[in-house]
Computed example of a mutant assay.
Amino acid sequence: MDTTTSPYLAAADRAHVIAQIARDRFASHGIVRVLHDIARHLDAAADMLAKFQPSTIPGIAGHEAPMDAWEELFIVETLADDRPQTLFPPEITEYVKAPVMGRALPFPEPLNPVSARFAAEETKYRARLEQLHQDTARAADDPAGWLTDVCTVWRDWVSLREVVRVDNARPCNRR
């Protein structure tokens, strides 16, 4: 897909790539169903974004948001938020919106792990995500590979978030 001509086509391409990543994840049967729901809503958003025609009326044109596509992405965020076992962060939809909205890419909130080992892992994931965010050439030239790497880091970070939550709650680790 030629994404150089339209931010909407770039967003659609990203949504399709992330949908495929969701479909390719291994998980329990119940979580696989949620992942397939996430993929279905991402594909629906992608189709709407690919067909979207921004206004050509002066004063209206610009970073318009195709509301139906954004609603599909909101459903993705809700599904991911409700089921952290998918290891998809709700923020993943920001990667779809970024070409259209021009906003900064999402970054995870600090976990503040008590354990030095988990703090080192968090630092590693945050550094890798920052590196990926700065690699705009790869994001443009190889969006599928770039997003696969981005989703891998987010998956690992979400997994770490759950481990840190449990570890920080242990009586011996309470501050």
Rank of each mutant, 00 (worst) to 15 (best):
D2M: 15
T3A: 08
P7L: 09
P7C: 11
L9S: 07
L9V: 11
A10H: 04
A11G: 04
A11T: 01
D13C: 13
A15R: 06
H16Q: 10
I18H: 02
A22E: 01
R23D: 12
S28G: 08
H29Q: 05
H29D: 01
I31P: 03
I31S: 09
V32F: 07
R33P: 01
H36W: 07
H36R: 09
D37N: 11
A39T: 03
L42Y: 00
L42C: 01
D43Y: 04
A45L: 03
A50L: 03
K51N: 09
Q53I: 08
S55V: 04
S55E: 06
S55A: 04
T56Y: 03
I57D: 08
I57E: 10
P58C: 02
G59Y: 13
I60Y: 11
I60G: 03
I60D: 05
A61P: 00
G62V: 09
G62A: 09
G62D: 07
H63I: 00
H63A: 00
A65R: 12
M67W: 10
D68M: 06
D68H: 10
D68Y: 08
A69V: 10
E71D: 11
E71W: 11
E72Q: 13
I75T: 06
T78V: 02
A80C: 00
D81L: 14
Q85T: 08
T86S: 07
F88D: 03
F88H: 03
P89G: 00
P89I: 03
P90H: 00
E94R: 05
E94I: 01
V96F: 02
K97Q: 07
K97T: 05
A98K: 04
R103P: 02
A104Y: 09
A104P: 07
P106H: 15
F107L: 04
E109N: 12
N112R: 14
N112W: 14
V114P: 11
A116S: 11
R117M: 10
R117T: 15
T123W: 07
T123P: 00
R126Q: 15
R126G: 12
Q131G: 14
L132T: 09
L132Q: 03
H133N: 11
Q134A: 15
T136I: 13
R138N: 14
R138A: 13
A140G: 14
D141H: 12
V150P: 00
C151P: 02
C151Y: 11
D156W: 14
S159H: 13
L160V: 09
L160R: 14
V163L: 10
R165S: 15
D167L: 08
D167R: 12
N168G: 12
N168T: 12
N168D: 12
R170S: 08
P171I: 14
N173K: 15
